[in-house]
Every structure is written in C-alpha cells, then in structure tokens.
Amino acid sequence: MSERNNIDIDYVANLARLELTADEKAKFSGQLEDILKYFDKLNTIDVSGEEPMAHPFPVFNVLGEDKPSATLSQEDALANAPKQRNQQLVVPKVVE
C-alpha cells in the first residue's frame, strides 16, 4: 500500500512554483507521504454503494441575477501591479 506513496517532490514543487533545498525536499516528502497515508486509510472503507459528493451540504443553485454592480476604478485595479504601462499590468514575457 505504501509504495504508491512515493512523492515525486521535484514535480510537485515545480507545479507549485516552489524552489526547495535538498533538506526541504526530504522533510516535505516525508510529510506529504504521511498525509497520503491518511488517504490510504480512507481507501480501506467500502464506498461502492455511495454517490460521490463534492459538498457536505445539500445546497444547490446559489444564483445571482445578471445585473451589473460596481467595478474597481482603473487606478485601483492596477494599484498592486509592480509595473504598469498603457493601463495594463506588465509581466515578464510569457508565451504559451
């Protein structure tokens, strides 16, 4: 059961955009594997007859009417940007 719990710490760190030292990698790998052990425990329970659910409360359709409300001013919208130009945020060039 536990061999499944080998965390690829480099892959996970990359997904989270984190740079980890060798010590941190060792430490966090262990912690994350401990967390996965809890899931192994959960996986021992037979839930084949249960309907999966995303929320613990049976609440549906929390909907808002399509009526416009206030916006932030352009100045406020850009206030946290370290750099701006042409009323837009400037970020390092990123092309997908």
Binding site: G64, T71, L72, Q74, A77, L78, Q88
Partner: peptide
C-alpha cells in the same frame, strides 16, 4: 456582477472577485 462588454478601456471591468483578492467568493450568474 462586474459588467462585461467588448471594447472597454483596459482594466476597467474588474472587481475584487475578478482580481482574485483574498476572501472574495464567487456567485453564479
């Protein structure tokens, strides 16, 4: 409920939810 339409001045159709500010919550349209 921030408005959306084509051709507006850049970054004038935002609110804290659009900008992903901490503590904001989404409500479906």
């Amino acid at each position: 409920r921030a408005p959306y339409h084509y051709g507006a001045e850049p970054n004038t159709l935002t609110d804290p939810v659009v900008l992903g500010m901490p503590g904001t919550l989404p409500v479906m349209n």
